[in-house]
Amino acid sequence: MQQTKIEIEQASLVLKLLGDRTRLTMMALLKMRELCVCELLEVFDMSQPSISQHLRKLKDAGLVKEERKGQWIFYSINKNSDAFPLLESVLEFVPEQKEKMEQILKSNPTMRCGC
């Protein structure tokens, strides 16, 4: 299967976004499953608006997509993005975030926030 090449500007933007530790960690977590902002609050020492800002940048670049479920928004990796093969390649070099995912599952924030 031949991969579609992306423009250098798009590749540069993707790599710049993934150069941020928080966003790279978010993408590694989203590789495991879709997540709500309240779940990400459990593993990042930052405010909800800060997490939302990181997600907005990833969404604006087409790396994540959002799906509304009731009043809550869940984020997942956009596998239809032209940049997905690049993202997938980068994430191959990132350790799995099992401990952070276990922290999310153990604290079960979706029970508190209702998503």
Rank of each mutant, 00 (worst) to 15 (best):
Q2E: 10
Q2V: 08
Q3C: 08
Q3P: 10
T4R: 08
K5M: 09
K5T: 10
I6E: 00
E7Y: 11
I8H: 02
I8L: 05
E9D: 09
E9W: 02
L13A: 00
V14S: 00
L15W: 01
K16E: 09
L17H: 13
L17N: 06
L18I: 03
L18Y: 07
G19S: 02
D20M: 05
R21G: 15
T22P: 04
L24Q: 14
L24I: 11
T25C: 14
T25S: 12
M26A: 14
A28W: 12
L29Q: 07
K31W: 06
K31G: 04
K31I: 00
M32E: 14
R33I: 13
R33V: 13
E34F: 15
L35Y: 13
C36W: 15
C36M: 15
C36T: 11
V37D: 08
V37K: 06
V37R: 09
V37Q: 01
L40Y: 10
L41G: 09
L41V: 15
E42W: 14
E42K: 13
E42C: 15
V43S: 09
V43E: 08
F44G: 03
D45F: 05
M46Y: 15
M46D: 15
M46C: 15
P49E: 06
P49N: 12
I51H: 03
I51T: 00
S52R: 14
S52K: 14
L55C: 07
L55G: 01
R56A: 06
R56T: 03
L58R: 00
L58E: 01
D60Y: 00
D60S: 10
G62V: 03
L63V: 01
V64P: 03
V64A: 08
K65F: 06
E67H: 12
R68E: 04
K69H: 10
K69V: 00
K69A: 05
Q71A: 05
Q71V: 09
Q71S: 09
I73M: 07
F74D: 02
Y75D: 03
Y75T: 02
I77M: 08
N80A: 11
N80S: 12
D82N: 02
A83R: 03
F84M: 11
F84W: 10
L86V: 09
L87V: 09
V90L: 08
V90R: 14
L91V: 01
V94F: 14
P95S: 07
P95C: 01
E96C: 03
E96N: 11
Q97L: 14
Q97T: 12
Q97E: 10
E99P: 03
Q103I: 04
Q103T: 01
Q103K: 06
I104R: 08
I104A: 04
L105K: 04
L105Q: 13
K106H: 08
S107F: 10
N108P: 15
T110F: 09
R112W: 05
C113A: 03
C113H: 06
